[in-house]
């Protein structure tokens, strides 16, 4: 790990201002992703701004009947919240399908959204990776590369990495909005749909956040009810990242929302696919995967996603 200086901050706008002003500074929250990457020198900040003293650790009702989740709410606390268990069960299910008990006690809401990919070549600093070192190439797309875990849709010639978060997939199905504060003190609200960016030619640019911008909260709209589930398929039954996951909200009339994890650089959902829910998994998946460009090794994910959705729909119908 490279040497760095360290400070604690007390108010959100001040934190954002500091991050904009100090060269190569980074926020640290739970530290469970950032410190892992710093040990490998994939992340090399010169200065850490510890945001754990900012408050921002409450879950409160909003005026329109939804919830505002402070960025420092830990994954365990969010999953166990009575309102979340009752009104947004897809979120509890997704959180509990991720990481381990120890990690969830530290992982924060904002940090979870900003965790970086688990592409094995991103982690191996001896390999070419456009995300880690722009312009160096993409080892994951070289002939014979190990790509079975990687993305099939929304990916580009520059990068086929997936976003690894389970929580974000449920939040996407729930139409969550990310609230932030900028270094100048203004605040803004970014729909989660627009928060993560597709790689295109610039896979190193992963989110809509501006330099120094701090996540303060994630809001959920008023509860939509329906049958909610999160189905995660992985190489072992616990403590592993998703190969494919499906967040499903299904209303009694057959309408609803579906978001996929493990297949794309961001939680994967679109309105046209949601409309096809009454027609079943095949139609929905054809729409969600219409621009897929899988590798030989990860083509299986397209069929696996369809079957996972079919199984979730069957269960929802009871």
């Amino acid at each position: 790990m490279r040497a760095f200086s360290y400070e604690k901050v007390k108010n959100p706008a001040g934190a954002a201002a500091r991050a904009a002003e100090v060269a190569n500074a980074k926020f640290v929250a739970g530290g469970t992703n950032l410190l892992d990457l710093m040990k490998l020198e994939i992340e090399t900040p010169l200065h850490l701004i510890d945001v754990n003293g900012l408050g921002l650790d409450r879950i409160e009702g909003t005026d329109d009947g939804g919830l505002r989740i402070g960025t420092l709410v830990r994954n365990t606390a969010l999953a166990a919240d009575e309102r979340v268990k009752r009104d947004y069960p897809v979120l509890t299910r997704a959180l509990m399908a991720g990481a381990s008990g120890q990690l969830r006690n530290k992982a924060t809401t904002g940090g979870n959204l900003l965790q970086r990919t688990r592409c094995p070549y991103f982690y191996d600093t001896a390999m070419a990776c456009n995300k880690r070192k722009p312009g160096s190439g993409c080892a994951a797309q070289a002939p014979g590369a190990f790509s079975r875990q990687l993305g099939v849709v929304g990916v580009s010639e520059a990068c086929i990495a997936t976003h690894p978060s389970d929580m974000a997939v449920a939040m996407r199905a729930l139409d969550a909005v990310v609230e932030t504060v900028m270094p100048e003190g203004e605040t803004r609200a970014i729909p989660l749909a627009d928060f993560h960016l597709l790689p295109g030619h610039t896979p190193e640019v992963e989110t809509a956040l501006k330099p120094g911008e701090l996540i303060t909260a994630v809001t959920l709209p008023a509860p939509v009810g329906g049958h909610q589930s999160y189905t995660k398929v992985r190489d072992r039954s616990s403590y592993a990242f998703a190969l494919v996951s499906v967040a499903l909200i299904r209303q009694p009339d057959g309408s609803g929302a579906v978001a996929l994890g493990g297949v794309a650089p961001k939680p994967w959902r679109n309105a046209a696919a949601d409309k096809l829910l009454p027609e079943g998994a095949k139609a929905v998946m054809a729409e969600l995967m219409k621009d897929a460009r899988p590798t030989e090794q990860n083509r299986y994910k397209i069929k696996l996603a369809e079957r996972t959705l079919a199984s979730a729909l069957n269960e929802a119908k009871g």
């Binding site: 490279r2 904009a20 190569n24 980074k26 992340e43 090399t44 010169l46 880690r132 190193e204 640019v205």
Partner: peptide, 22 residues
């Protein structure tokens, strides 16, 4: 705050504060 690519490109070794803490 700089992007990841900036960090890779140039390592400014002048740190804005001490490297140890109590």
């Amino acid at each position: 705050m700089n992007t990841h690519s900036d960090m890779q490109a140039g390592q400014d070794t002048a740190l804005p504060g001490p490297t140890t803490s109590k």
